[in-house]
Design a protein around this nucleic acid. Structure first.
Lengths: 304, 304
DNA sequence: GCGCCTCATGAAAGTAAGTTTCATCCGTGG
DNA sequence: CCACGGATGAAACTTACTTTCATGAGGCGC
């Protein structure tokens, strides 16, 4: 190892492939054959065994090892792994996903999946970015201290409301969800100072939800609105406004991304409240988890 | 259980890591130790020799090999290479966000939000990556052609089931959701060939849901399972298995990320079915949207 | 409670992959 | 024509990987 000065031996953080093609001319003929194979298709090379690669390059294993050393690798396994990693990094998300756009008419399932997932994930991320932690903090504080929490939402937002209610309940907070305006109004009429009413509406224009929050506020309860549009009517009857950042598209009027964004906000509030009283929340979660245990079958283990 | 195993054999084009964590509960204890090491740091695992990894997992080489086979790899070298590739493709979480981990006790709201959003978005992306379009296609086909669709889920999955039902209903498919086992069983008893039953269960072990699918299948209906664990009991009573890829953590036992992942799958199926009959679906959506219009206040011209 | 069976497991044998050594070959310059 | 040095592959060798098998634990029927 003391003799040939070929190796830079140092780190070549850029591309191993680039590195190899760079010193290709300085390699011996047999090593060059190996190098060319490797550069031509790194992923394929990574899949081959040393004997295999040697044969393909019409040379011996020994030469392949020499090649490894020449390019600064310790041995063949190391090269293989580096090649696999390189090759993987190379692949770029090729298909132009319709960002925030509609699903093209001729789309196949794979495209649909990619598009939806992209938009969904995006909505979640962007929602988190624009969420104001200070406002969240206050909402968490209010909920954590509330005597009672009423959650309300209609349509798709109803599921989210219901989910939120269930979550709060599981950590021992007294929370209610009402699927229709009338019962909601009845309940809200009994709220007072120190209680919290949460209204969820993607558009922020659902009159039922607004009405409920309005009533709650009139009774002195703290009102929280969760909507995608910071200047929508619902914000006018809310003490605290939390916004989502979903860009719904026409076809997606089923409110797909917005729902996920709403759920993310709900999750944050939930964890916030739970974190506020860790011990108690944990206990409550354990107890409730235990309660459904008898409805589970078998341990997970299955053979394949 | 008369039918053949319908596991998507070796379909893990998305994350191998994700695939492994999905299979985790179906592995033997010793294999699980190996799996955890691998999932925790794939790049590191790729660097280790089999003996090394076995030692680290406090087990024998034989078990590591068994683990390789369990997750669908031919042998250890293959696993190593795949892991290296995975690790390379993976983008590092910006700051020290606890990936898939618990929320640290002292966390402030901003941290909580970042962590949750990161994990939620991740679950959505990874779910999409590992979804098998071919299976989705078949499910979409079945639902699109079904005389009737029954959707069932308990607990948190119940919301998702309900959401799915509502979506299908909005595009003119005859779909039902039942919040309790008894009514569900009653309904399912009336299903027949050409109908579809969808069961949603994160763990795949919820006995109620399994029972419902079992009945549906006995009646000749096509059964679809949506779960996070590809070898859980529910998969044995399903003709088609769709999996999510959420890594729930202790504190997140409220099934937060898994819910979003499930919704993403639901969205995909929904759009798939809608795309199958674009005109009709669009019409149906318009009509239903119009129906709630009178419950909206103010101008709807705001857009994010 | 008892024996049977199945399954998980690691020790050890066996095989394949990777690495080193060394003799040969070939071209070059004396 | 010989001495030399680098390139190269055959074969010996080492290490890594894989298979086989005996053991023991845990579950299940009797």
């Amino acid at each position: 190892m003391a003799k040939s000065p070929k190796i830079s031996a140092s780190h070549e953080p850029g591309g191993l492939i680039v590195h190899i093609s760079g010193l290709l001319p300085s390699l011996s003929p047999a090593e060059q054959r190996v190098a060319r194979l490797v550069v031509a298709d790194p992923a394929d090379a990574a899949r081959r065994t040393i004997t295999d690669l040697a044969t393909a390059a019409e040379t011996s294993e020994a030469t392949v090892i020499r090649f490894c050393r020449s390019v600064g690798m310790e041995g063949y396994p190391q090269l293989r792994i580096r090649l696999a990693a390189e090759a993987a990094r190379r692949i770029e998300p090729p298909d132009a996903r319709v960002v925030g756009g509609d699903i093209p008419p001729g789309a196949d399932l794979a495209q649909i999946i990619a598009t939806i997932a992209f938009n969904d994930a995006r909505a979640v991320e962007e929602t988190a970015e624009q969420l104001d932690p200070a406002v969240c903090e206050q909402v968490v504080e209010a909920i954590g201290a509330a005597g009672r929490i009423d959650v309300y939402g209609a349509g798709a937002s109803g599921f989210v409301a219901s989910d939120f209610q269930q979550k709060l309940h599981r950590i021992g907070r007294t929370a209610f969800y009402f699927p229709d305006v009338h019962t909601a109004l009845t309940s809200v009429a009994l709220l007072g100072r120190g209680d919290v009413a949460v209204g969820i509406s993607h558009t922020g224009t659902t009159s039922d939800v607004i009405e409920v929050l309005e009533q709650a506020r009139a009774r002195g309860a703290t009102t929280v609105a969760l909507t995608n549009f910071p200047r929508s009517p619902i914000t006018e009857v809310a003490d605290f406004v939390l916004t989502t950042a979903a860009r719904e598209t026409t076809y997606r009027s089923g409110a797909m991304a917005s729902r996920l964004a709403q759920l993310t906000v709900v999750d944050c509030l939930f964890v916030g409240v739970a974190a506020r009283n860790r011990a108690r929340a944990k206990k409550a979660l354990e107890v409730t988890a235990e309660a459904v245990q008898s409805h589970r079958v078998g341990a997970g283990r299955r053979r394949g």
